[in-house]
Amino acid sequence: MSHDDHHSVVIPAPGPEFKPHTVAHHFDTPVQEFQSAKLGFWLFLATEILLFGGLFAAYFYFHEQYPETFVVGGKQLDWRLGGLNTCVLLLSSWTMAMGVRAAQTSQKKKLLMYCGLTVLGAAIFMVIKFFEYKAKSDHGLFVFSEMLGGYDTATGQLPWFTDIHGVMAGVPHGHMFFAIYVTMTGIHGLHVIIGAGLIIWIMFGAAKGRFHAGYYLPVDLVGLYWHLVDLIWIFLFPLLYLVP
């Protein structure tokens, strides 16, 4: 008793290297399917904004409470590396946009190339981030190996914040800047890794010819996700590296 006509909507492939797409049975038209998925994904991105929003609210809250911590702490970060990473992410956003465009215009090789470049951008970003983290870890500003170490309630000493060079000496709650820095960039970094994974998944699909002008929905959605990662970094960079 189901609507048989629902099963019959198939978007033909534009060429032999592509595969046709069958519209899910509960949608009447491909437009309905496309728009439903996209609306759903925009809502998901809205939740991501609010998730990060909590972190940003914490940033501003403590920026007001302990301004000195942010001034001195911010100087410990290298704005050159941060700026370089900003450029890397902006470029990768551009390659992703071009990748979506390639999918929209049924250009399989270009889609693969742009996706590959985007993943490369993600990798460069994470490598730079790794070196930044390592430098901070070496200076005792957040010691990764000690992060799980609990802390001494008697002295209030934090194992992950030893401040070897005493750069935060005399600053009340000097660890607070680095706590916020590592939390925000850490969760952002997690998103970079997830995004890169999704793009690699897209590349597998693209190699099989699943994405073309008739059906490029997953490429579009992953692209939106990647731009969101970029979007968040656009705010993180000045807040952490420049303003304090």
Partner: peptide, 20 residues
């Protein structure tokens, strides 16, 4: 999502003592 980030921060706080 704000609840999500809140409980996540509590979990991070318990594990890593970031202090927020």
């Amino acid at each position: 999502p704000v609840l999500g980030i809140t409980v996540l921060l509590v979990a991070i706080e318990r594990l890593y003592h970031i202090g927020i």
